[in-house]
């Protein structure tokens, strides 16, 4: 019986440890201590832009195509193809763009952080930083979080643009059941600036959690290369769960009580 109790106890302990670690990193960013290493934060921002932007935009573009296709065929099947923009607007902005962004962040950025910090841990680079008198959490983790906060809002808004453009291409240019003006009228009618803000909040919450989870697993990796691999896999699992959890809670919170749809006046 005690063996059965051990697992949830360990899980709780790990969650607590992760939360404490994350709070420390957030504290270092909010207190602006991270600005001691602004150069490193900007370097990380550069790495994020050059290595992840295109792949995130690419994935979101494909998701936008899918939303457009589903919207066009569904509204055609119920005899209202002019309303394809409703489906595209909601699908893109509220759900699939944040999810696609979260998936790619987890797969590309999250695992990248775990692998990089984990390798630094096992090759004693983190120890070297510490013995040179640096706060390694500040230097390695807080700078990454600041970099993601600096870069990702812009990257995400641009990704939304890519998704919208892809849906437009599919509905108007490929399927062609609705004119450009008709599509855009409905498309913009069913969304407004607060929706964009909520979507951004959803995505940035996902990104923050992904960076923190990546830092936690990478920084605390042990057991050599196998340990780094295990930590990477674990972080991916946790990140995917967290992305869906945040997605669900965000939808519930922002649009659950009020769908913000101009239907029935």
């Amino acid at each position: 019986m005690s063996a059965w109790l051990e697992q949830p106890k360990d899980l709780l302990a790990n969650v607590g440890e992760g939360a404490k670690f994350s709070a420390k990193i957030m504290g270092q960013v909010y207190s602006l201590r991270v600005l001691r290493f602004l150069g490193e934060a900007l370097r990380q921002a550069g790495v994020l832009i050059t290595s992840s932007t295109v792949v995130i935009w690419g994935l979101v573009f494909i998701i936008g195509l899918q939303c457009g296709l589903e919207g066009a065929y569904f509204t055609r099947s119920i005899g209202s193809p002019a309303y394809a923009g409703v489906f595209a607007a909601w699908c893109d902005l509220r759900e699939l763009v944040p999810y696609a962004f979260g998936y790619m962040m987890a797969a590309k950025v999250g695992t990248g952080i775990v692998a990089e910090l984990g390798s630094m841990r096992i090759s004693e680079e983190i120890d070297a930083l510490e013995v040179m008198g640096f706060d390694s959490v500040l230097f390695l983790c807080a700078t990454r979080l600041l970099a993601s906060w600096l870069v990702l809002p812009f990257m995400y808004v641009a990704a939304i643009g890519a998704g919208f453009f892809a849906s437009y291409l599919t509905v108007v240019e490929q399927v062609g059941d609705v004119s450009s003006g008709g599509y855009l009228l409905i498309f913009w009618m069913f969304q407004n600036p607060p929706d964009l803000l909520y979507s951004l909040i959803k995505a940035m919450s996902m990104a923050t959690v992904i960076v923190l989870v990546g830092c936690y697993y990478g920084y605390n990796a042990n057991g050599g290369p196998v340990g780094v691999g295990t930590a990477t896999a674990k972080s991916m699992v946790v990140n995917l769960i967290m992305v869906h959890l945040i997605g669900m809670l965000g939808t519930q919170l922002f649009w659950g009580a009020n769908p913000r749809a101009p239907i029935g006046g």
């Binding site: 390798s119 630094m120 004693e124 680079e125 120890d127 070297a128 013995v131």
Partner: peptide
Amino acid sequence: FGVLFQDGALFG
């Protein structure tokens, strides 16, 4: 302190 780690621990 100056510490020389086993494999140098240089930043890659």
